[in-house]
Design a protein around this nucleic acid. Structure first.
Lengths: 133, 133
DNA sequence: ACGCATTAAATGCTTGTGCATTGAATGCAG
DNA sequence: CTGCATTCAATGCACAAGCATTTAATGCGT
């Protein structure tokens, strides 16, 4: 029993998406890791923060809540919590008390963090350009 | 320093691809796991085998080499080896000696395996249709 | 003011993945 | 035939991710 006519499109679309995703994220992982000591998710987080995209409290542009970042990079809250811990250990990020709501934690990019992101960004863009041109 | 003009396209493309991938594979994981006890990769493997796509030796359609399946589903050789082991434990697949080259292993779909795949395929298609229509 | 459901983030635990290594079988060179 | 590099799959190991739970802080209702 082969696939239904109507199903072929979505299945092929899905497989192509899986293939693209695998190829690109694999290449990204290698390059970012080898050349800058960053994983794909790590870079993605730094990238969002560097953009200063802040949907947060005062509409600011440097402080981020953990859950907010988790949504952005499609990771679970726990995964993000640990990822932040890793970035903090490396000195790329710091955690700060959120005075307004003391359950919350603000994540801030350090100078070193900005630097590492700035170094890695061209590599990131290059890989994407190569594989998605 | 914002993103280069030329870079915006690929970066947005990449982010959209990441988002699509996260959404769909998350939904698939939930549905397949809850309703059929299968992970996404597991299903993908069964699916390729059920298709009898066999690029293998005699151009057959039921025996598969491990590495061959690994390529298809974008997993490492070791990941596939363990995945096969899981499927074998569940009785969905069996391993057989490859007489021609006794380093190799053939993976065969069992009746139970075909059955589980047949049950899960509609769910799989439904999820894809919902999210990629 | 008090209790209770809710929310934020961290943590214990399990599992899947990749890298590197191992062990077995093959095949090619001399 | 012997030795050596190569290839296939399995395994040891380290690590990232998700789920469920925990701890802390809020805030809402009475």
């Amino acid at each position: 029993m082969a696939r239904q006519k109507s199903g072929i499109d979505v299945i092929d679309t899905w497989r192509e998406l899986l293939a693209r995703h695998a190829t690109v994220s694999c290449a990204l992982e290698r390059e970012l890791s080898d050349r800058h000591g960053l994983g794909v998710s790590e870079f993605e987080v730094l990238d969002r923060m560097a953009e200063g995209l802040a949907t947060c409290d005062g509409g600011g542009k440097e402080k981020f809540r953990v859950q907010e970042l988790a949504d952005e990079v499609h990771l679970s809250q726990s995964a993000l919590s640990r990822l932040i811990a890793r970035l903090e250990r490396e000195g790329l990020v710091t955690r700060a008390m959120c005075e307004a709501d003391r359950r919350g934690v603000f994540v801030l990019l350090t100078d070193e963090g900005r630097k590492r992101h700035a170094e890695a960004a061209p590599t990131h863009l290059a890989v994407l350009t190569t594989h998605l041109g």
